[in-house]
Computed example of a mutant assay.
Amino acid sequence: MRAYPANWLYEEMAFIAHHFHWSHADLVSLEHRERRRWCREISRINRTLDGVPANPFDV
């Protein structure tokens, strides 16, 4: 089993913390799948607010 790269973990945690202001303890308690899900949801919200299509090939 490969370890999840630490820099990716920190990027995901910083991304969620920036948007939701969650504590370090809250962030490290998230399971990988849940943390990735929150990142996808935040990204979806940001795309919607910015008027960017979910699929960049949609015109």
Rank of each mutant, 00 (worst) to 15 (best):
Arg37Gln: 07
Val59Gln: 15
Arg37Gly: 12
Glu34Gly: 03
Gly51Glu: 07
Arg36Lys: 15
Ser23Thr: 09
Phe57Gln: 15
Arg47Ser: 08
Val52Gly: 03
Val59Tyr: 14
Asp26His: 06
Phe57Pro: 03
Val52Trp: 02
Tyr4Pro: 01
Leu49Ile: 05
Cys39Leu: 01
Ala3His: 15
Glu11Thr: 00
Ser29Asp: 02
His21Lys: 10
Cys39Arg: 09
Ala25Asp: 02
Phe57Ala: 12
Glu41Trp: 05
Glu31Asp: 07
Asn55Ile: 10
Ala3Gly: 12
Glu31Phe: 13
Glu34Asn: 03
His18Met: 08
Ser43Trp: 15
Ile45Arg: 00
Glu41Thr: 04
Ala3Gln: 15
Leu9Asn: 05
Gly51Gln: 03
Phe20Arg: 14
His19Ala: 09
Leu30Lys: 06
Ser23Gly: 00
Asp26Ala: 04
Ile16Gln: 00
Met1Ile: 12
Phe20Trp: 13
Leu49Phe: 11
Val28Asp: 07
Arg2Lys: 12
Pro5His: 10
Ser29Val: 03
Trp8Gln: 13
His32Phe: 15
Val28Lys: 08
Asp58Ala: 09
Ser29Ile: 06
Met13Thr: 08
Ile45Gly: 02
Glu11Tyr: 14
Trp22Ser: 01
His21Asn: 08
Glu31Cys: 11
Arg44Asn: 11
Trp38Lys: 04
Val59Phe: 07
Ile42Gln: 05
Ser29Glu: 06
Leu9Thr: 01
His19Gly: 01
Asp58Met: 10
Glu12Lys: 07
Ser43Gln: 14
Ala14Tyr: 11
Asp50Tyr: 10
Ile45Met: 04
Trp22Arg: 04
Trp22Tyr: 07
Met1Leu: 06
Leu49Tyr: 03
Glu11Val: 05
Asn55Thr: 11
Pro56Asn: 07
Cys39Gly: 08
Ser29Arg: 02
Glu12Arg: 12
Asp26Glu: 15
Arg36Met: 14
Val52Cys: 10
His19Gln: 13
Thr48Ile: 04
Arg40Leu: 15
Leu30Ser: 01
Ala17Ser: 07
Ala14Arg: 08
Ile16Arg: 02
Glu11Asn: 09
Arg47Met: 12
Ala25Gly: 02
Leu27Glu: 01
Glu34Ala: 10
Phe20Asn: 15
Arg35Val: 08
Phe20Thr: 14
Tyr4Leu: 14
Ile45Cys: 01
Trp8Leu: 14
Glu34Met: 11
Arg35Ser: 03
Ile16Asp: 00
Leu30Arg: 00
Arg35Asn: 05
Asp58Ser: 06
Glu34Gln: 12
Glu34Asp: 08
Asp58Ile: 13
Ser23Leu: 04
Glu41Asp: 06
Thr48Asp: 15
Pro5Met: 13
His24Asp: 06
Arg47Asp: 15
